[in-house]
């Protein structure tokens, strides 16, 4: 436990402000080069990612869209350092993530990425505030620092009056806002949202999406993964995932999408 605290002290300033070092301002926050990932299933090597390239700059709002089975969840796991690629290079904030140990990856997840999951992934026995404090516990912050950061984050998502409610006392939209507050609390450079509106009805989904857009306007870098074209349309950039390949950027991507409309049609309904 001692090491955790030491690291926290050493990086204390950086972690709380999330400002990038000036020298890397023009370098991409996420730089993925030819990332491949394959799983062994029933003795056969099944490729899921077949050479993905992606760059995300600070302040971007990128939506990755694709049908299920296209590999976008696997890509999200790789971006989120929940899974390691089979080959290829992934630089997060200038740091190569590929060869890192499990402990270092946990630290990268803790400091570098704020996760927003489709099914919220809140711990049911904890209050909203305790849930938001969770990543800060693993960062080694003191109780007082955690409470302040958690309260600020919950206030930011408009839940200042629900801090001591447990998830089962909150609506779906409120739960997702708690999850967003949890992702924000540690001021990570990237927010990674996996189908953030997938478990919500249209109205609350739109509210949550509005919050995400608002966060982007405030300067947060957001990578959003969805199969819903309407959701993706809110993003500044859209990348299309299909059969393990990512087709990036405006015109090209839309052309690619136009050539294979059915893959998306099925899922956007």
């Amino acid at each position: 436990m001692g090491r955790g605290r030491r690291t926290a002290a050493a990086h204390g300033d950086v972690s709380l402000t999330a400002t990038l070092p000036p020298s890397s301002e023009r370098a991409p926050l996420i730089s993925i080069r030819d990332v491949r990932k394959s799983y062994r299933m029933a003795g056969e090597e099944v490729p899921i990612l077949k050479g993905v390239d992606l760059e995300v700059m600070a302040g971007d709002f990128l939506a990755i869209i694709g049908p299920s089975g296209s590999g976008k969840s696997t890509l999200m796991n790789v971006i989120g350092c929940l899974d390691t690629p089979t080959s290829g290079s992934y630089k997060l904030d200038g740091q190569e993530v590929g060869g890192l140990s499990e402990n270092r990856l946990a630290e990268v997840r803790n400091r570098g990425i704020g996760f927003i999951f489709q099914s919220f992934h809140l711990l049911p026995r904890m209050t909203a505030r305790e849930n938001v404090e969770l990543p800060l516990i693993y960062r080694g912050l003191s109780g007082k620092e955690r409470r302040e950061a958690a309260e600020a984050a919950l206030a930011k998502v408009g839940l200042a009056d629900r801090m001591d409610h447990r998830p089962n006392q909150l609506s779906g939209g409120q739960m997702q806002r708690v999850a967003i507050a949890r992702a924000l609390a540690g001021h990570p450079p990237i927010l990674l949202a996996d189908e953030p509106t997938g478990a919500l009805d249209t109205k609350t989904g739109a509210e949550v999406l509005g919050l995400v857009q608002e966060l982007n306007r405030q300067g947060h870098t957001i990578v959003l993964i969805t199969h819903d074209l309407d959701v993706a349309a809110k993003a500044g950039r859209i990348a299309f995932m299909k059969d393990g390949l990512l087709t990036e950027e405006g015109g090209d991507a839309r052309e690619a999408f136009a050539r294979h409309p059915h893959g998306l049609e099925q899922h956007s309904r």
Binding site: G4, L82, A106, E107, R111, F115, H121, L122, L134, Y138
Partner: peptide, 19 residues
């Protein structure tokens, strides 16, 4: 298991979960 997954995603190291 899911709780462990959430904790790990949020930055719990192996020894944190072990502990």
């Amino acid at each position: 298991t899911r709780e462990i997954g959430i904790r790990k995603a949020l930055g719990a190291r192996k020894r944190d979960v072990l502990f």
